[in-house]
Design a protein around this nucleic acid. Structure first.
Length: 562
RNA sequence: GCCCGCGUAGCUCAGUUUGGAUAGAGCAGCUCCCUUCUAAGGAGAAGGUCGAGGGUUCAAAUCCCUCCGUGGGCACCA
């Protein structure tokens, strides 16, 4: 909106400019919006600086405009906003409960599938990435005004479950989990891989069990199978509860395999796939520039992609989705390409509304994690260490706090630190898990943002009731910087939603917190007086609201005290 | 071999889609600031051949080409 005013002002100075050509100046002192004259200089043969001067001289800022002035620096025409005039509108907006909601977009039904832990071992820090990224993306889309379905998908029929079932039958039959069930079952999973090194028959047994379960629908195997996955999911739910994550729906692969097989048949009938000599069915994708892939095993059992065909069709028909998003690691980039191509070949027009949000792995300093070899840092373990460490810090700061209250705050800090540390990284970057960094509560961390929020809360608590004030005669640079950052929030949200990259919100919030801390250090609020005081209090309120909304977007709670 | 991601300060990362002003943070180390709205904070100094080499451009971390390093994928794992 302000950019449009700049474009208008330029037009009156005989310059045809577009909003997209405008830039944010490198430093605040240069102004609020810049128009670089280099391109035009080239066209007209003038020097950029000369041209910038000419343009600036011609510019007449209208009386009621939100622009204050224009200045020349080098080859730039720098515009300054009239912040005294703008402040009111910015503050009004920022105090809204759902500040950041997109106004002019089509509201869609969007399904976000994320987390998808294998029900054979506990979630490790690698799962944290899909889980927190998915949650955050969901929150962002929801804030924008979309209807979001958060779903989790359990691969409860794969070979890996067959392996666990085989192991349980051999070494744990009849036993019930002791402690957290996903951890308890993990031992059997690890043992299976250990033993199968010297005993290749185990692999065969697992395949046999898979056939019994999937094709023969063997009752005895099914019972154990279901029990085991149920136990594992119970373990997951405990973890989800700790990190405050809820799903609208769980999908189970076992329920979509048969649907998928029907679609495999259809692909075969329509000559998009062929049967090999040994009976496997292969989708022919080479002519589309994609490697071909097996979509049904020669023994008749399905694969991951088989079920996903069925499930995706189900998603779109049952929920009438406009979009379906999968938050899954980059390891499966090719598989999603293949899946989406197959859906296209099946004639589903919605195939173009399928999006794979890919991210790189979390690795340990010593290399890749391996759950089957028992070498992984588990999510519960990290949460526990963080909570313990946070509790120590909380108690150090406020010795009068009750144990219960201290624990409550420590948990918020721990989860905040965890989620922020994961979500803030650009998804295409690999994350190297580092305990020291994970346990840090200073600098660019979740607690830093939470702390800025508590500072706001502290001021407002001490101030008591006050009259909101939206205008002020003279604004300081610290106040201006804050307003400017607050004003950008909706743009940041829509960019983050458009690119499906929650880390953009993290970066924004870190900047907001830094700018606020700056304001906090140099602008007295409670010690100021009259309307100035009320204006600053209103500004603090607005900042607090944006921090709260933003933190919640990444699944982090904003405490008033810490 | 082919396809995809990544390579920016000692370490961990923003910035690259849409080329612009002296390349930004945090951590670690150094110097300061708590009788002041909570120091989980702030100020300052130091730290960079933006993997390498070419090219395009008035202007390249950003675009193009080649190469190197690294992680992942490439038919019955998921």
């Amino acid at each position: 909106m302000l950019e449009e005013e700049v474009v208008k002002a330029l037009k009156q100075a005989d310059v045809e400019a577009f909003v997209s050509e405008l830039e944010a100046p490198a430093e605040a002192k240069y102004g609020d919006v810049a128009y670089p004259c280099f391109k035009l200089a080239r066209q007209t043969g003038k020097s950029p600086n000369e041209l910038a001067k000419e343009i600036t001289e011609k510019i007449r800022i209208p009386e009621k405009s939100s622009l204050a002035s224009a200045e020349v620096v080098g080859g730039y025409v720098n515009f300054f906003f009239d912040w005294e005039k703008l402040a009111g509108k910015v503050l009004q907006d920022a105090l809204e409960k759902h500040y950041g909601r997109a106004e002019k977009i089509k509201k869609e039904k969007i399904m976000v599938e994320f987390s998808q832990p294998n029900p054979v071992h506990p979630m490790h820090v690698g799962h944290a990435r899909t889980t927190f990224l998915g949650e955050s993306l969901s929150n962002i889309l929801e804030l924008q005004g979309h209807k979001v379905f958060r779903t989790n998908y359990m691969n409860d029929v794969g070979l890996q479950v067959a392996k666990l079932v085989t192991a349980y039958n051999l070494w744990g039959k009849g036993k019930e989990p002791k402690g957290k069930p996903d951890f308890w079952l993990w031992q059997y999973y690890v043992k299976f891989h250990e033993e199968s090194k010297s005993n290749p028959e185990l692999e065969q047994q697992a395949h046999e069990n898979l056939k019994k379960f999937e094709l023969e629908k063997d009752k005895a195997i099914s019972k154990i199978w279901k029990q085991i996955t149920k136990w594992c999911i119970q373990g997951f739910e405990e973890t989800y509860k700790k990190v405050g994550i809820k799903f609208d729906e769980y999908f189970f692969e076992s329920e979509f395999r048969d649907d998928g097989k029907k679609l495999v048949d259809k692909l075969l009938k329509n000559n998009f796939a062929h049967k090999t000599d040994d009976g496997a069915i292969v989708a022919d994708l080479e002519k589309f520039g994609i490697p071909s892939t097996v979509i049904l095993r020669s023994d008749g059992t399905g694969l991951y992609i088989t079920s996903d065909l069925g499930l995706t069709a189900h998603k779109f028909s049952k929920y009438k989705l406009n979009k379906s998003i999968w938050v899954v690691s980059s390891q499966q980039n090719l598989n999603f390409k293949q899946l989406f191509k197959l859906l296209e070949l099946l004639g589903y027009s919605w195939y173009k509304n399928c999006f794979h949000v890919s991210f790189e792995h979390v690795v340990l300093p010593e290399g890749k994690m391996s759950s089957r070899e028992g070498r992984a840092v588990m999510l519960d373990e990290v949460i526990e260490a963080l909570t313990k460490s946070a509790l120590k810090e909380v108690k150090k700061r406020d010795k009068k706090l009750s144990e219960e209250k201290a624990k409550e705050i420590a948990e918020k800090i721990a989860i905040g630190a965890l989620k922020y540390s994961v979500v803030r990284i650009e998804p295409n970057d690999q994350i190297v898990f580092d305990w020291n960094q994970m346990l840090s509560f200073t600098g660019n961390t979740g607690p830093y943002l939470q702390y800025a929020h508590t500072r706001c809360a502290g001021i407002l608590e001490r101030s008591g009731n006050f009259l909101q004030e939206f205008s002020v005669d003279k604004i300081s640079s610290e106040e201006k910087n804050l307003l400017k950052q607050i004003m950008m929030f909706p743009n940041v949200i829509s960019q983050s939603a458009k690119e499906m990259k929650p880390h953009i919100v993290c970066n924004y919030l870190y900047e907001l917190a830094t700018i606020f801390n700056n304001f906090y250090e140099s602008v007295p609020v409670l010690k100021s007086e009259g309307s100035m005081k009320n204006f600053r209090l209103t500004l603090v309120q607005a900042t607090k609201n944006v921090l709260r909304i933003g933190l919640n977007l990444i699944g982090v709670e904003a405490p008033d005290k810490m």
